[in-house]
Protein backbone atom coordinates (compact mmCIF):
# COMPACT_ATOMS: atom_id res chain seq x y z
CA UNK A 1 0.00 0.00 0.00
CA UNK A 2 1.42 3.38 -0.96
CA UNK A 3 1.04 6.11 1.61
CA UNK A 4 -0.54 9.41 0.70
CA UNK A 5 0.17 12.88 2.01
CA UNK A 6 -3.08 14.67 2.64
CA UNK A 7 -3.99 18.08 3.98
CA UNK A 8 -7.45 19.06 5.08
CA UNK A 9 -9.22 21.42 7.41
CA UNK A 10 -10.89 20.08 10.53
CA UNK A 11 -13.11 22.58 12.30
CA UNK A 12 -11.20 25.40 10.62
CA UNK A 13 -7.77 24.13 11.62
CA UNK A 14 -5.33 22.69 9.11
CA UNK A 15 -4.52 19.01 9.54
CA UNK A 16 -1.97 17.14 7.49
CA UNK A 17 -1.24 13.46 7.68
CA UNK A 18 0.38 10.57 5.89
CA UNK A 19 -2.22 7.87 5.48
CA UNK A 20 -2.73 4.43 4.03
CA UNK A 21 -5.51 4.43 1.43
CA UNK A 22 -7.66 2.17 3.60
CA UNK A 23 -7.71 4.56 6.55
CA UNK A 24 -11.24 5.85 6.97
CA UNK A 25 -11.99 9.49 7.59
CA UNK A 26 -13.41 8.36 10.92
CA UNK A 27 -10.12 6.82 11.94
CA UNK A 28 -8.18 9.82 10.72
CA UNK A 29 -10.37 12.12 12.79
CA UNK A 30 -10.14 9.92 15.87
CA UNK A 31 -6.37 9.48 15.70
CA UNK A 32 -4.41 12.11 13.80
CA UNK A 33 -6.95 14.88 14.24
CA UNK A 34 -7.87 14.18 17.87
CA UNK A 35 -11.57 14.13 17.12
CA UNK A 36 -12.84 11.54 19.58
CA UNK A 37 -16.29 13.10 19.35
CA UNK A 38 -16.74 11.21 16.09
CA UNK A 39 -18.21 7.80 17.02
CA UNK A 40 -18.45 4.51 15.20
CA UNK A 41 -21.89 2.93 15.51
CA UNK A 42 -22.22 0.38 12.71
CA UNK A 43 -19.66 0.77 9.94
CA UNK A 44 -22.34 0.34 7.30
CA UNK A 45 -23.45 3.94 6.83
CA UNK A 46 -26.80 3.15 8.39
CA UNK A 47 -26.89 4.52 11.92
CA UNK A 48 -25.60 8.07 11.45
CA UNK A 49 -23.46 8.03 14.58
CA UNK A 50 -20.29 8.88 12.62
CA UNK A 51 -21.83 11.78 10.70
CA UNK A 52 -19.54 14.72 9.98
CA UNK A 53 -19.99 17.61 7.57
CA UNK A 54 -17.71 17.51 4.52
CA UNK A 55 -17.61 20.90 2.85
CA UNK A 56 -20.83 21.56 4.71
CA UNK A 57 -22.68 18.37 3.74
CA UNK A 58 -23.38 15.37 5.97
CA UNK A 59 -21.37 12.23 5.19
CA UNK A 60 -20.62 8.90 6.81
CA UNK A 61 -17.07 9.28 8.05
CA UNK A 62 -16.93 5.47 8.40
CA UNK A 63 -17.52 5.01 4.66
CA UNK A 64 -15.24 7.78 3.44
CA UNK A 65 -11.55 7.14 3.03
CA UNK A 66 -9.22 9.79 4.35
CA UNK A 67 -7.44 10.03 0.99
CA UNK A 68 -10.71 11.08 -0.58
CA UNK A 69 -10.93 14.25 1.50
CA UNK A 70 -7.56 15.74 0.66
CA UNK A 71 -8.03 19.48 0.36
CA UNK A 72 -11.54 19.47 1.82
CA UNK A 73 -13.05 20.90 5.00
CA UNK A 74 -14.51 18.71 7.74
CA UNK A 75 -16.75 19.87 10.56
CA UNK A 76 -17.35 17.75 13.63
CA UNK A 77 -19.63 18.57 16.53
CA UNK A 78 -16.75 20.37 18.20
CA UNK A 79 -16.72 22.75 15.28
CA UNK A 80 -20.21 24.01 16.00
CA UNK A 81 -19.09 26.47 18.65
CA UNK A 82 -15.91 28.02 19.93
CA UNK A 83 -13.84 25.88 22.29
CA UNK A 84 -15.47 25.75 25.71
CA UNK A 85 -18.77 27.14 24.51
CA UNK A 86 -21.99 25.54 23.37
CA UNK A 87 -23.83 26.34 20.17
CA UNK A 88 -27.48 27.32 20.75
CA UNK A 89 -28.53 24.02 19.20
CA UNK A 90 -26.39 22.17 21.75
CA UNK A 91 -27.95 24.29 24.48
CA UNK A 92 -31.38 23.30 23.19
CA UNK A 93 -30.46 19.61 23.32
CA UNK A 94 -29.38 20.13 26.91
CA UNK A 95 -32.48 22.05 27.93
CA UNK A 96 -34.90 19.66 26.23
CA UNK A 97 -33.07 16.45 27.17
CA UNK A 98 -32.43 15.58 23.55
CA UNK A 99 -29.48 13.53 24.69
CA UNK A 100 -29.59 10.52 27.00
CA UNK A 101 -26.62 8.21 26.51
CA UNK A 102 -25.23 10.81 24.13
CA UNK A 103 -23.65 8.44 21.64
CA UNK A 104 -25.85 9.51 18.73
CA UNK A 105 -25.79 13.16 19.75
CA UNK A 106 -22.82 14.43 17.68
CA UNK A 107 -24.25 13.01 14.46
CA UNK A 108 -27.74 14.13 15.36
CA UNK A 109 -26.58 17.70 16.06
CA UNK A 110 -24.65 17.96 12.81
CA UNK A 111 -27.48 16.61 10.68
CA UNK A 112 -29.98 18.94 12.35
CA UNK A 113 -27.68 21.94 12.01
CA UNK A 114 -27.02 21.24 8.34
CA UNK A 115 -30.69 20.77 7.58
CA UNK A 116 -31.86 23.88 9.38
CA UNK A 117 -29.18 25.96 7.70
CA UNK A 118 -30.64 24.90 4.37
CA UNK A 119 -34.27 24.91 5.44
CA UNK A 120 -34.58 27.48 8.22
CA UNK A 121 -38.35 27.11 8.43
CA UNK A 122 -38.51 23.34 8.22
CA UNK A 123 -41.49 22.00 10.11
CA UNK A 124 -41.44 19.14 12.57
CA UNK A 125 -42.29 16.50 9.97
CA UNK A 126 -39.58 17.72 7.62
CA UNK A 127 -37.11 17.59 10.47
CA UNK A 128 -38.28 14.10 11.39
CA UNK A 129 -37.69 13.04 7.81
CA UNK A 130 -34.25 14.65 7.65
CA UNK A 131 -33.20 12.70 10.74
CA UNK A 132 -34.42 9.34 9.46
CA UNK A 133 -30.84 8.16 8.95
CA UNK A 134 -29.66 9.09 12.45
CA UNK A 135 -30.71 6.39 14.86
CA UNK A 136 -31.28 6.96 18.55
CA UNK A 137 -32.03 4.05 20.87
CA UNK A 138 -32.67 6.07 24.05
CA UNK A 139 -35.03 8.97 23.48
CA UNK A 140 -37.68 7.87 21.01
CA UNK A 141 -36.76 11.07 19.09
CA UNK A 142 -39.52 13.17 20.64
CA UNK A 143 -37.24 15.30 22.80
CA UNK A 144 -34.66 15.51 20.02
CA UNK A 145 -37.29 17.08 17.78
CA UNK A 146 -38.44 19.31 20.64
CA UNK A 147 -34.88 20.57 20.99
CA UNK A 148 -34.37 21.19 17.28
CA UNK A 149 -37.68 23.01 16.97
CA UNK A 150 -36.87 25.17 19.97
CA UNK A 151 -33.58 26.14 18.38
CA UNK A 152 -35.28 26.84 15.05
CA UNK A 153 -37.86 29.07 16.69
CA UNK A 154 -35.32 30.94 18.78
CA UNK A 155 -33.21 31.54 15.70
CA UNK A 156 -36.17 32.85 13.75
CA UNK A 157 -37.07 35.22 16.54
CA UNK A 158 -33.56 36.59 16.48
CA UNK A 159 -33.67 37.10 12.74
CA UNK A 160 -37.03 38.86 13.01
CA UNK A 161 -35.57 41.26 15.57
CA UNK A 162 -32.63 41.87 13.25
Amino acid sequence: MSKHEIALEVNGRPVSATVDPNMSLLELLRTEAGGLEVKLGCGEGVCGTCTVLLDGEPVNSCLTFAVQVDGRAVTTVRGLAAEGELHPLQEAFLTHAGSQCGFCTPGMLLTAKWYLDRHPRADREELRSALSGNFCRCTGYTKILDAIEAYRDARQEVSVVD
Binding site: G45, G48, P58, N60, W114, Y115, A130, G133, N134
Partner: peptide, 9 residues
Amino acid sequence: IGNVRVRHR
Protein backbone atom coordinates in the same frame (compact mmCIF):
# COMPACT_ATOMS: atom_id res chain seq x y z
CA ILE B 1 -32.43 6.03 -1.41
CA GLY B 2 -30.70 5.54 1.93
CA ASN B 3 -30.48 8.66 4.03
CA VAL B 4 -29.26 12.23 3.62
CA ARG B 5 -25.63 11.14 3.87
CA VAL B 6 -25.87 8.45 1.24
CA ARG B 7 -27.76 10.82 -1.05
CA HIS B 8 -25.00 13.41 -0.70
CA ARG B 9 -22.20 11.06 -1.65
